[in-house]
Simulated assay, not measured.
Amino acid sequence: MKKIKVFSVLALVLAVPIFIAADHVDAPGVAGSSADIADYFAFEPTPGSDHTVFIVDVQSNVLPSLTYGAFDEDVLVEINIDLDGDLVEDQVIQAIPRDGIMYFFGPFNPSSTGLSSQVAFENALGSVEISGTTAITTTTSNGVSLFAGPRQDAFYFDFNRFNEVIAPSPSDNSGFNVPGTDTFDGSNTLSIALEVPNALLGSPSAQNVIGVPVYKTWVTTNRKQ
């Protein structure tokens, strides 16, 4: 077993259907690396589906040419799922790259929780070739769909106009432009995506504001020590 300790953690409670959390450019220790969590999505692929989709975007500002950066083989991504409302992970899904392949493990009930983890080799889920310009997906024998590779950055934000509006002495106080200019258009992130049957995850204990059962879930990145 390879010991993995946390390098950077982003913890967010999500609801299903979709809740989006965006966090581009973290602390200097993770910024610009695949330990930097940019976005995390969890949602039903269709209303009332018995599957859940999880998408983790890491390393913002990957160039459209796909030549900048790659998944770091020393970074383990963990999707954590709380089933009983105590905000402690009851199920974990792991993803880690090796030689152009993304390997997935879980879902499994971890023997320990918190800020250190081990790669759960005994809970192998499946693997997929890391995509380049053409998307590659695979589906495991138990119905889990897998993907890893660069994708268009989902973050839409007029960053230049934002800086103009919040400047100490803005020359133009008219507010934001409609429509604005997407500063991140043409940039990519590195994405890890899974569609998982809920039967493999367990029953959610929470409900969203419209009464739909949801999973409480967050993602962490962990660097090998």
Rank of each mutant, 00 (worst) to 15 (best):
1 M>F: 01
3 K>N: 09
4 I>S: 10
7 F>P: 09
11 A>T: 03
13 V>A: 10
15 A>I: 03
18 I>Q: 14
22 A>S: 09
23 D>H: 11
23 D>M: 10
24 H>V: 01
28 P>S: 06
32 G>Y: 01
34 S>E: 04
41 F>V: 01
42 A>K: 15
43 F>P: 15
46 T>I: 06
50 D>S: 12
50 D>R: 15
55 I>L: 09
56 V>E: 14
58 V>F: 04
58 V>L: 10
62 V>K: 14
64 P>G: 09
67 T>F: 04
67 T>M: 11
68 Y>N: 12
69 G>A: 05
77 V>Y: 07
77 V>W: 06
77 V>Q: 14
84 D>C: 08
90 D>Y: 00
91 Q>D: 03
93 I>F: 01
94 Q>G: 07
97 P>V: 02
97 P>K: 12
98 R>Y: 02
98 R>M: 06
101 I>L: 12
101 I>V: 06
114 G>R: 15
124 A>R: 14
129 E>P: 13
131 S>P: 13
135 A>N: 12
137 T>F: 02
140 T>W: 01
141 S>E: 07
141 S>M: 06
146 L>Q: 07
147 F>W: 02
150 P>R: 12
154 A>Y: 05
155 F>A: 09
156 Y>V: 04
158 D>W: 04
161 R>E: 04
169 S>A: 08
175 G>L: 04
177 N>D: 07
177 N>H: 06
178 V>Y: 07
180 G>K: 13
183 T>D: 12
185 D>G: 13
185 D>Y: 04
186 G>A: 04
186 G>Q: 08
189 T>H: 09
195 E>S: 06
198 N>I: 00
199 A>M: 00
200 L>W: 00
200 L>Q: 05
201 L>G: 00
201 L>R: 00
202 G>F: 02
209 V>N: 13
211 G>L: 05
218 W>L: 08
219 V>Q: 14
220 T>D: 15
222 N>I: 02
222 N>C: 09
222 N>D: 10
